[in-house]
């Protein structure tokens, strides 16, 4: 589904006054594309995810998903956060099934289980479906959380720093998992991240936001193809792209103060 933000501005009302967070932000993510968004800490990235998912309404401008204005949450969206927020009283399989219990009440439990297992297998958690979340490592919990965000076949996937709390090696593992999912499932994705290499490795396009109030500062097309390998991160071309992005982040951080 095509995602589009048109001149979106947003501010939070605080006791001390209002805090402008987004200012005249416009960008679009074509259907099936993967867009990464980077920007200084606290510039308003999570606010964007809440606007796109319909959890929040923008003060000005509009958010459209396949040409329709987003007014409230819709079942065609999947979300995952830095904190995997798995439910401790459910095993992994039942955690993954949770969204189906909300959006597909009428399909049988067998069908739900079948779909959940399909995803668990893709991310390498097939043997852990009966485990409790607390028995899994951080990386495995995040894999389960990804499965949960995709189980209802959302058209839009929103990832807010899902790998932010993982160590470097686990993170790279999960990047590969993410590529596998991207190949198997069809979704339009917005990934918020602090990791420029992650942005380049996973996305078709990287957006750099300015400091708060955030607007679009820079846009970079990633020219890696569909078959990506970690080695691609060490070529001259990606090194150049990384340098450009780093420069842009510096500019954005300065604009924040």
């Amino acid at each position: 589904m095509h995602i589009e933000l048109r001149n979106v501005s947003h501010e939070f009302t605080l006791e001390a006054g209002s805090l402008p967070v987004l200012k005249d932000l416009s960008f679009s993510v074509p259907k099936g594309r993967f867009t990464a968004i980077v920007g200084p800490s606290g510039c308003g990235k999570s606010t964007i995810t809440r606007l796109v998912s319909g959890l929040l309404k923008s003060k000005k401008g509009e958010v459209l998903i396949s040409k329709e204005v987003v007014k409230s949450p819709r079942s065609t969206v999947g979300m995952a956060f830095q904190n995997p927020v798995l439910l401790e009283w459910r095993n992994i399989l039942d955690n993954v099934i949770l969204p189906l219990e909300i959006v597909s009440k009428n399909i049988s439990r067998e069908t739900k289980i079948k779909r959940a297992r399909e995803l668990l297998k893709l991310v390498g958690l097939a043997e852990f479906e009966k485990s409790k979340p607390s028995e899994l490592s951080g990386g495995m919990r995040q894999r389960a959380s990804l499965c949960r965000s995709l189980v209802h076949k959302p058209e839009v996937l929103i990832l807010d720093e899902p790998f932010g709390a993982l160590d470097a090696f686990t993170r790279e593992d999960l990047w590969q998992t993410m590529l596998t999912l991207k190949k198997q499932e069809s979704f339009t994705c917005i990934l918020i991240t602090h990791d420029l290499r992650e942005a380049i490795f996973l996305a078709d396009e990287v957006l750099v936001l300015s400091g708060r109030p955030a607007s679009l500062q820079f846009q970079l097309d990633v020219k890696l193809g569909d078959d990506r390998k970690l080695d691609d991160l060490y070529t001259n071309e990606t090194t150049k792209s990384l340098a450009i992005l780093r420069k842009q982040i510096e500019i954005a951080q300065k604009s924040m103060i």
Partner: peptide
């Protein structure tokens, strides 16, 4: 209750009651 717990269900259009009995209540037990 951490807001993310509500967000995973709210973003799917779950009702307040669903959030209460699927997440808030068991988590408080």
């Amino acid at each position: 209750l951490e807001p993310e717990y509500k967000d995973i269900l709210l973003s799917l259009g779950a009702t307040k009651f669903e959030i209460f009995y699927k997440i808030a209540l068991p988590k408080t037990l």
